[in-house]
């Protein structure tokens, strides 16, 4: 039995030091795989793609040029394992082929504005903010044009992504 020999430093490697190293290396490998997996799991939210979030809000055909339309819809949002439903609405404006979607909240303090068909402007009831049909501020306290949502048309349906795109002042 070799275990009487001093645990081998230097050139001579005893059976004991060899086995110590082998089991140490195995333990390190197992430990590395396990902790790397655990770490990847822990940090995975950093790499998770957000739900794209396109919601069908209505038919393109209902939208007339020069007549902004407010559409109400139910937004289904995936929140990790849960799905939440929220009532939401969006203002849609058609100009030729182009469709623009406005966040229905005033950029001043968030009141819901309305379309005044006679004046051809968006009017906010809270502090008399006025926006043009392209969202620019005409008068009143709002600090920046209306915020927008991404919008696209697919097979005649209007799809909106209700993550506000903040407008520049």
């Amino acid at each position: 039995m070799e275990h009487e020999s001093p645990s081998g430093s230097g050139a001579e490697m005893t059976r004991r030091t060899f086995l110590t190293w082998v089991s140490g290396a195995c333990a390190a490998a197992i430990g590395a795989v396990l902790s790397a997996s655990g770490l990847a799991y822990f940090v995975s939210p950093a790499f998770r793609k957000d739900d794209e979030g396109w919601v069908d809000v209505g038919r393109l055909a209902d939208l007339k040029a020069g007549a902004p339309l407010k559409l109400d819809y139910v937004e289904r949002r995936k929140d990790a394992w849960a799905t939440t439903e929220k009532r939401a609405s969006v203002w849609l404006v058609k100009d030729g082929d182009k469709v623009t979607a406005f966040d229905p909240r005033c950029t001043h303090l968030g009141c819901p504005f309305r379309w005044d068909d006679a004046k051809k402007q968006f009017l906010c009831p809270c502090h008399a903010g006025v926006f043009a049909v392209d969202g620019k501020v005409v008068s009143g306290p709002p600090p920046r044009p209306l915020d927008r949502y991404s919008v696209k048309v697919e097979a005649g349906r209007l799809l909106v992504n209700s993550k506000p795109i903040r407008s520049e002042a």
Binding site: A40, Y41, V43, F47, R48, A80, W81
Partner: peptide, 23 residues
Amino acid sequence: DHAYDSVKFIGDKVILGGFIRGL
């Protein structure tokens, strides 16, 4: 109302979630 979905979420959406759950 969430237990089953949250376990499914671990397997489908979390990186190595299926592996960690398997362990």
